[in-house]
Simulated assay, not measured.
Amino acid sequence: MFILFCIITTKLTAQTWIDVTQQYIQNPSFEDYTACPQSNSAYPGSMWIDSVVGWYAPTQGTSDYFNACNTFLNGVPSNWIGSNVPSFDGIGYCGFLSYSLEPPNYSMWSEYIQSTLIKPLKSNTSYRFTMRIKRANGFNFAVQNIGANFSENANTGFSGTKPYNLIPTVLNTSGFLTDTLGWTLVSGQFIATGNENYLTIGWFGDTISSDFIFFIPPDIDTTNGDSLFLTETYYLVDSLTLSELIFDIENFNVNIITPNGDGKNDYLDFSVYDLKKLSFTVYNRWGNKVFNSDNAQLKWNGKNNDGKQLSDGTYFYLLNATLESGKQITKHQSITILY
């Protein structure tokens, strides 16, 4: 569990990231299936991606499924991509063409995977989403704009295989995804609106012209000397996680406050916690009580009970809180006021 103490915002609180993957995302490492994949997907009759429990292809793009239950083309770790392509964890992963120009008309082709969330995300709540991405060896270019989109609607109304022109909720920020050996972490934080019911993963862009880097030299047209590129690249995805940021007074450990009105660390905010009762008392270095409150919604900005700003210096506080669950929390330590 990762604990974060905010020191660069208007209010000071203790916050904790908790793993809520299993509460929201079905089959997050693609382990479970209804049928072992026997080959790559083919629309419409052999969409093996649809055999992944909780997941499916939202368009006619033929995303693929790989699992150790298969020992040939779509196995793990050996498959049509290579003889040693292990998963990040477990025995399964999914694959998709992020972008391709398909002959004879060289129309755009992008593939996606999608899932219905177990329940909607919470309104006005901070989440952190992560996934592992690997570029498949043997394809001649790489892209950057691999991401994830949390949406209210399923986005399945798109016909054909054109890329989604959507703004992703989480987007890769580590540059071109070129690694074919390791799994690259793609992660991001966002605040949910509360209407998110679906998760879609793939390439998010409206043109490839600004999102590609080539690895394999082009063929040369012997008639005119033009360079001929096969524009196609394929990615694997594994190990999805979702964490929720909660306010956690049990880890409250704030020791500085700067109530100078600059919008940074101006006050201690107890209103964000699920408190039934609160007793908060501040003492100066001589042990004299300079402030106390029983307000469970308290936002203390360094003033005494007469409303006057306390002087710079070190003080001590005693915090007794009762959670709605009835659990008692006691904290006592120093706190410094700076202007």
Rank of each mutant, 00 (worst) to 15 (best):
W55L: 04
Q60F: 08
S279D: 12
T336H: 13
T62E: 07
W203K: 05
P259Y: 15
V237I: 09
I167Q: 06
A142H: 05
G263L: 13
E232K: 04
L230T: 12
P103E: 05
L298N: 15
G225D: 11
M47D: 11
D50N: 13
S271F: 07
F72S: 14
L166G: 05
W17C: 09
T223I: 03
F2P: 00
A136P: 05
G188C: 05
L199C: 07
L278E: 06
G92M: 10
T156D: 11
S159M: 01
L310C: 14
Y164P: 09
V272H: 13
T169R: 07
N165G: 02
L117Q: 08
I25M: 10
V52T: 14
L228S: 02
K308N: 14
I246R: 12
I81K: 02
P86R: 02
K264P: 01
Q189N: 04
S325A: 14
Y127C: 14
Y283G: 02
W55M: 04
N305V: 11
N153K: 12
E102C: 03
D219T: 13
Q60S: 07
L236Y: 03
D306F: 03
L185I: 04
I208F: 08
L230Y: 03
V76E: 01
V254Q: 15
L245W: 07
S271Q: 02
C69R: 05
L268R: 01
I113R: 02
T71Q: 08
K134S: 04
G138E: 00
W203F: 00
K331D: 13
T314L: 14
V290H: 11
P218G: 01
N253Y: 01
N149G: 00
Q23M: 10
I216C: 00
K122M: 12
S123D: 14
D32Q: 14
L4T: 06
M1C: 08
Q15P: 06
T125Q: 13
L278N: 07
H332Y: 15
F141V: 00
L230E: 12
I7Y: 04
D206H: 10
T156M: 01
N79H: 02
F215E: 01
L278S: 09
D211A: 06
W300P: 15
N70Y: 10
T169I: 08
I91L: 11
F141T: 11
N153T: 14
D50Y: 00
V76Y: 03
S311Y: 01
G92I: 05
G225M: 13
D306W: 13
N79F: 01
S210H: 06
V76W: 06
P77N: 08
T9H: 07
S210P: 06
S100P: 00
S78T: 11
N172W: 00
T156H: 00
V186Q: 03
T322K: 09
F66Y: 06
T125R: 07
L275K: 02
S334Y: 14
L242Y: 10
A192E: 03
I146M: 13
I216K: 04
E102G: 05
P104R: 04
A154D: 14
S271W: 04
L245M: 12
T207H: 14
I213W: 09
D294H: 02
G326M: 13
L97F: 00
F158A: 12
L275I: 12
A68C: 15
T125G: 02
L318A: 06
T169Y: 09
T21M: 03
A142S: 15
S325R: 12
R128T: 08
